[in-house]
C-alpha cells in the first residue's frame, strides 16, 4: 500500500460493497418516497380543487409550511417525535410527504393544461363528473406530469443523504462510517459522488427525452 498517494484503489475496492448496500437503501427510499409523493400529491391537487374553503384553506397552509421548511429539519423533527417507528420508514415517509407538496403543483399545472374543450366535450356527452376525471382529464394530466415527476425523482434521490441525520445507513452514511473507521474519506466519498451521478445522469437524460417527446 502506498501511504503517500491520495487515492488507493485498494480502499476503493474495499468500501464498494458497503456503498452498494447503501445505494440500495438510497434507491429504495427514492422509489418508495416517490410513490408516496405521486399518490399523495395527486390527492392534494384534487383536494385543492374542491369548492369547499374549509378544505382548501387549511390544506394550503400545511402545504406551504412543508414546502418552506427544510427537509433536514422535517426529518429530524419527525424522528424525534416518532420514536417507535424505524428510521427508514420515517425517512421515506417524510421524503414522500415533502415531495408530495411539490408534486401537487406539478399535478395542478398538468390538470390546468388539459384544454377546456375536453371538459366541454365530456359535458356534451353527459359523462358523469367522476368518469370525466378518470377517463378524460387525469390520463391527459398525468401524461403532462411525467417529466415533472422524473425531475423530482432525481432531486429526491440527491437529497437522500439527509437521511444520515436520522441514522439511516444510506450511501452517504455508509461512506462516513467507513471513513471514520479507516481514516480514509476520499475514496468512499468520491465513489458516492460517482454512484449518484451514475444513477441520476441517465435518469435525467431519460426525463429530458420524455419532455421533448411529450412537448
Amino acid at each position: 500500500m502506498n501511504e503517500d498517494s491520495i487515492w488507493s484503489w485498494e480502499t476503493a475496492w474495499d468500501v464498494l460493497p458497503q456503498l452498494l448496500r447503501g445505494l440500495v437503501v438510497t434507491i429504495e427510499a427514492t422509489v418508495v418516497g416517490m410513490v408516496i409523493a405521486s399518490i399523495l400529491g395527486l390527492f392534494i391537487a384534487l383536494a385543492m380543487r374542491t369548492p369547499t374553503r374549509w378544505v382548501r384553506g387549511p390544506l394550503r397552509l400545511v402545504v406551504d409550511f412543508i414546502r418552506m421548511t427544510p427537509l433536514l429539519v422535517q426529518l429530524v423533527f419527525a424522528w424525534l417525535l416518532l420514536v417507535d417507528i424505524p428510521p427508514l420508514v420515517i425517512g421515506f415517509s417524510v421524503l414522500g410527504v415533502h415531495y408530495a407538496t411539490y408534486m401537487s403543483e406539478v399535478y395542478r399545472a398538468g390538470i390546468e393544461a388539459v384544454p377546456k374543450g375536453q371538459w366541454e366535450a365530456a359535458i356534451a356527452l353527459n359523462l358523469p363528473r367522476a368518469r370525466t376525471w378518470r377517463a378524460v382529464v387525469l390520463p391527459q394530466a398525468i401524461r403532462n406530469t411525467l417529466p415533472g415527476l422524473g425531475n423530482y425523482a432525481v432531486s429526491m434521490f440527491k437529497e437522500t443523504p439527509f437521511l444520515f441525520a436520522i441514522t439511516v445507513v444510506e450511501m452517504y452514511q455508509a461512506a462516513q462510517q467507513y471513513g471514520a473507521l479507516n481514516f480514509s474519506y476520499i475514496e468512499p466519498l468520491t465513489l458516492v459522488g460517482l454512484l449518484f451521478l451514475l444513477v441520476s445522469y441517465p435518469t435525467s437524460l431519460l426525463v429530458r427525452k420524455m419532455e421533448t417527446r411529450l412537448a
Binding site: 374543450g117 366535450a121 356527452l125 359523462l127 368518469r131 377517463a135
Partner: peptide, 25 residues
Amino acid sequence: MVFQQFNLFPNMTVLENIIEAPVHV
C-alpha cells in the same frame, strides 16, 4: 353537440371516443 375544434379525447382511440358515453352514460 359538435364543436368547431372537434374536442376528441386524444388519450383514446377513435372507437373508444365513440363508445365512451354510450357505455358509461
